[in-house]
Measured scan of single mutants.
Amino acid sequence: MSIQHFRVALIPFFAAFCLPVFAHPETLVKVKDAEDQLGARVGYIELDLNSGKILESFRPEERFPMMSTFKVLLCGAVLSRVDAGQEQLGRRIHYSQNDLVEYSPVTEKHLTDGMTVRELCSAAITMSDNTAANLLLTTIGGPKELTAFLHNMGDHVTRLDRWEPELNEAIPNDERDTTMPAAMATTLRKLLTGELLTLASRQQLIDWMEADKVAGPLLRSALPAGWFIADKSGASERGSRGIIAALGPDGKPSRIVVIYTTGSQATMDERNRQIAEIGASLIKHW
């Protein structure tokens, strides 16, 4: 067993022997300050990975656009099909120029040879490739089937209704393509630590998230040396920005953090900075 597999395998073990964890309200002060700075709603939740206990939250049951954070859930659904023998990570999918949508930095380079399901999930999570996400959605039956998968997991909140890039419209009070911080955190925890996926698939999912290449300005920018993070960011219209992450010190994840914001007129750089500052406060008061 590799060191990485050993780390994931021990998560349920540590759950039975973990020391108590305590929240620090200073982080919530920073979350509220971020709302003021951005002139927008901010949703935040911090969940103990082992016990599932909510350590701190702000607007945990308000809806926010999922943006590209849905791609982790999508690849979780794909992996569940792999575990059930209904899909193969090595299966090659061919597509055409007509399938390409905006922001497809990986898939646009493989029009001649296609990409495997594994490569598409990697592109969707690590590079947030939109065409990769659409091709993967097709393999499971579309957005409604992803919503059904989540319902079967016990998540009756999170929903995907449209494809890339339309799902990023982020219209106020529109429940399409939205989640709540509490629902997303719970669902992510189930995918990473529960029995829904095999150990190999849980490890694959967290490996893809750990290799995320487009979330550098967010929580990763505040991460001390030696800390672990596996994450997925998202951005969409109407000043929306978000990130879902499993992180912790000593090279292993111990908490789930979900941050969403929407309705801001601030620049992308400012939205990134506010999320990074929330992360810095979280780490300082860990």
Rank of each mutant, 00 (worst) to 15 (best):
K284Q: 14
L28K: 07
T187H: 01
R271T: 09
I54R: 06
N173H: 14
F228G: 00
T69G: 00
L79P: 00
L218A: 03
W227F: 02
P253T: 03
A280V: 12
G114A: 03
L247R: 00
S80V: 10
I3S: 06
L89I: 10
S2R: 11
E145I: 09
E175M: 12
Q86P: 02
R273L: 07
L38M: 10
A148G: 13
A222V: 12
N173S: 13
Q88K: 14
R238I: 10
E169H: 11
V157L: 07
L192V: 07
E237P: 15
G239L: 01
D212H: 06
I243P: 01
G154Q: 03
L223I: 11
C121G: 03
R81E: 05
A266C: 11
L137A: 02
P12Y: 13
D250S: 09
V31M: 02
F13R: 11
K53S: 09
F6E: 06
P143T: 12
R41W: 03
G234A: 04
L10P: 06
A77S: 11
I206T: 12
P60C: 06
L218K: 01
P165L: 05
E270S: 05
H24V: 07
L167T: 04
S236L: 01
A170C: 13
T139R: 09
R59T: 05
V257A: 02
A225L: 11
P25G: 04
T107V: 07
E56G: 08
D99H: 13
T112R: 14
R241I: 04
H285Q: 06
L219Q: 01
E169P: 05
N168H: 04
Y103G: 07
E61A: 13
T69H: 01
P20L: 04
A246S: 04
V78A: 03
R118V: 09
K190E: 12
S281A: 15
E237D: 12
E102D: 15
I11Y: 15
V31R: 00
T27S: 03
G226C: 04
G85F: 08
K30I: 06
T178A: 01
T126M: 06
V8L: 14
Q86Y: 12
G234R: 00
K109V: 08
K144Q: 06
E195A: 07
Q86R: 12
L79E: 00
L247P: 05
L191K: 00
R238K: 13
P65I: 02
H110G: 07
C18T: 15
G251F: 05
T186R: 13
F13L: 09
T112W: 12
Q88F: 14
